[in-house]
Amino acid sequence: MALLEVENLRTYFYTLKGVVKAVDGVNLKLEKGQTLGIVGESGCGKSTLAWSLLKLVPPPGRIVDGTIRIDGMDVTRMSESEVRSKIRWKKISMIFQGAMNALNPVYTVGEQIIEPILLHTDMTREEAMEKAQELIEAVGLPPEILNRYPHELSGGQKQRVVIAMALVLDPDIVIADEPTTALDVVVQAQILNLMKKLHRERGMSIILITHDLGVVTELSEYIAVMYAGKIVEFGKAEDIFLHPLHPYTQALIRAVPRLKGDIHKLEYIPGQPPDLRNPPPGCRFAPRCKKVMDICNREEPPMIEYEKGHYVACWLYAKR
């Protein structure tokens, strides 16, 4: 049994202007210790997917269909208090986007780190503080940071604190939602190095959510490409980058300027992603796709395993 199994997950936002289908039929599987990258552009539903896994979808959004199984437990059928006592922090935790704002400005770093420990375990304050100190050292910070307030730390230090917090109860899965977006490249590289190190030492699974194709390759063994609420391609990182199948993945890779090699003309994808209140029938990428065929506008392509472990949802590969 996989550590995490997501089946046909649908998370919709019921806004006054209509139902936004942010996540619309997502299937995922993650084994213990694997690293998965979810890439996609803004508004493709990647953050909503992350929130759904923690059952933290903010209203007016809610999970309307599908199952999320973590260690065999069906999270979608659990009550809020069950999720809180059995899942969050213990099984799955999250490093939020914009660490700068994820910390409470009126508590010291130490107080914030021990809070979940005191709530979820029967450790004493002293024991919890010891644990916090161990974690803060594991993320490469000096122990005196525990007595500081968030505003006294630099961006990189805050991000390290947020990472330490995600690890307090030794979760099996850590979700990192754009963990380095607000950081400069040097600090970004330090944080990614740290996450690699933690992954090797602790063996937890990591789900990295990012829009940056460079960042995703730093950490992810598997990559899922999302477009307009759906996963359009999934496979090993090598398969995705060296033999991309979906026209969207192909175009995305060719749209990024590189630091090495010849400078070739960049491609861009004309048009813009569809309105998720009213997605086009058939394939959602069809209106922007260079290889569009008749069927693409009529029927939604099924996800097929084109090569071993390399899945794609595109009519170019599916048998009709």
């Binding site: 690293t35 490249v185 040097v186 970004q188 590289a189 990614l192 190095n193 460079g214 730093e218 630091l259």
Partner: peptide, 27 residues
Amino acid sequence: EALIAAIPDPDPENRKKFRDLKIKGEV
């Protein structure tokens, strides 16, 4: 040199190694 070494170019090989950052401390 340090700045360039820090930038992740999309390459699946990246995850197999740590980035060698030839720079200390913060700005």
